[in-house]
Design a binder for these strands. Structure first.
Lengths: 301, 301
DNA sequence: GAGGGTTACGGCACCCGTAAATATT
DNA sequence: AATATTTACGGGTGCCGTAACCCTC
């Protein structure tokens, strides 16, 4: 049984075909393209034809004697170059010797989970000779460390995305409590807070004050300790939606707690003296964070 | 004559192979992968093998009965997904009906050349039904227009890259005169200036004042008029290196003119209500600007 | 022995080069 | 005539499914 053209009609663009196409478009002729690619001009002609009826689109206008790109052709040209570039980049990565060295990464403690473990695991497996130093502090401290040159790149949680930052994700800050707990009815509200410079602290207290609600700080303590206190119904706190541990509960508006402003997960990469390993890790963080938490779920063709 | 493996050994990654590989890695087995891809598990096995000796790297450890990614395999996995995603994105673009609508683009007059004409030409050809409105003002005015919602995206020339901007390019600001001219020895220096709010104006005057040199403004007038005055040896001015017209001359340090700070070409895209056409144009500007003026040439090793 | 991977085999389709046909200047 | 693309043909290779073989649990 041939499973040729099922519901999904094999939508794969052959990079060789893309090369022939780009070469033809750039040189303006198939003969010249063939010369570039070490192919007969007849072969190039066939490749273009194959590409055309793969996409079911005319790519060139063959009027007169001049090959002119059609609209679809121009459209493809603009993107085919990227495909080829990516192909070559991957090829380069795969044939180069593995990176070595050290990358110093900063992450605020409250978003290590669930973002980082899978990323770091994969990166570690992919580049076993690269040592990753993980610095875990508050967002402000991390930004200082970055500009001081103590780390190479860092994630932060901030209410904006300042100059030099790259926004990866925007998420709601949500109140967090113990399932079945009652502590959030207490007045003053016991607010667990890992760190005085925690970025979320200001947001929480600002919300509470605007509401006229009394509060008291529980802590400061480490992130894990704070989570334990919440689990024990000794306090509430706020976290990004996706970093809420499964055994804790998100407190909606009916809990009487004030709405909180959304926060951003930003990425900073050191601009000077940055090497390929740093760029590679940054790329992975970008990819994986957006893949896992932005994209709903991609059907696998 | 077969030109099989010449100096360039056909470094094309078959997207179908990449699909098989990713599916295998994600499902943890070739049987399950085959089920996803509508392939025999034998076929999947062959595809993995083909990919392995295409890259000349083992991708899986076949110990025990479990397939585990090798370092190279993990490395490939991280990037193969991007390749597939790009392939599918292109396929989507090519099979979708062409975009329609209007894009309002802002550009400071002094960098229209040589950046924009080829980009706009290509974009116009690729999406003939899209109307491009080109707004040509100073960088500050353009930023205002963007936040007022009067334009959808804009290029600027600035000495920094503020929040919300994306830096495409950094280039030296250079003094510009007429070949064989003598006007730059005149005191006070006649400085051609297209527009009082021109971003370069401050840089030029600041440089001159630091040097203690006297100056007078010639203009303001339109960009073309100013270039004509320079060509007539009536004034000098400063432009980004790559927008210097071929018939004018760059004045080096031996001209006695002060050094100037480098400038950035930044891109701003409206964040709200932005549609696919705007994103597509932004993507093209990014690609083409960096392609033509930044990347020297990538060694394909 | 059941489940999963590898390998051999047969057939079909793909894809190149050669070369003839076609078209444009 | 000359240059450039298309097309027909032949041969080699690629790649699938089938199925046998192998290994581990």
């Amino acid at each position: 049984m041939k499973t040729n053209d099922l519901s999904v009609p094999l939508r794969n663009i052959d990079v060789a075909l893309a090369r022939a196409f780009v070469a033809t478009a750039e040189t303006g002729g198939m003969t010249a393209a063939g010369r570039l690619l070490n192919l007969t001009q007849g072969a190039v002609s066939q490749q273009i034809k194959r590409l055309e009826d793969l996409l079911q689109k005319e790519l060139f206008d063959r009027e007169h004697r001049q090959l002119t790109l059609t609209a679809e052709g121009e459209r493809l040209l603009l993107h085919a170059r990227r495909l080829i570039a990516l192909n070559d980049e991957i090829w380069g990565l795969m044939s180069a010797p593995g990176f070595e060295g050290t990358v110093r990464l900063g992450v605020p403690g409250d978003i290590i989970r669930p973002f980082l473990p899978p990323i770091l695991r994969a990166f570690k497996n992919a580049w076993p000779k690269v040592k990753i130093e993980l610095n875990c502090e508050s967002s402000v401290a991390l930004k200082k460390a970055l500009s001081a040159g103590d780390i190479d790149l860092t994630l932060t949680t901030e209410s904006d995305t300042p100059q030099g930052a790259e926004r990866l994700l925007t998420e709601d800050l949500v109140w967090l409590g113990c399932p079945g707990g009652r502590i959030w009815h207490e007045d003053p509200l016991p607010v667990g807070n890992a760190n005085p410079s925690c970025t979320f602290r200001a947001a929480m207290l600002h919300g509470l004050e605007k509401q006229g609600r009394d509060w008291r700080i529980v802590g400061p303590s480490g992130h894990e300790v704070m989570l334990a206190k919440i689990e024990a119904d000794l306090a509430v706190t706020a976290l990004l939606q996706s970093s809420v541990p499964p055994h804790l509960e998100i407190l909606g508006p009916d809990s009487g707690l004030p709405a909180l402003t959304p926060f951003h997960v930003n990425l900073y990469v050191r601009t000077s003296q940055t090497n390929e390993v740093v760029q590679e890790l940054a790329q992975q963080i970008r990819d994986q964070v957006t893949r896992r938490f932005a994209a709903p779920e991609r059907k696998a063709g």
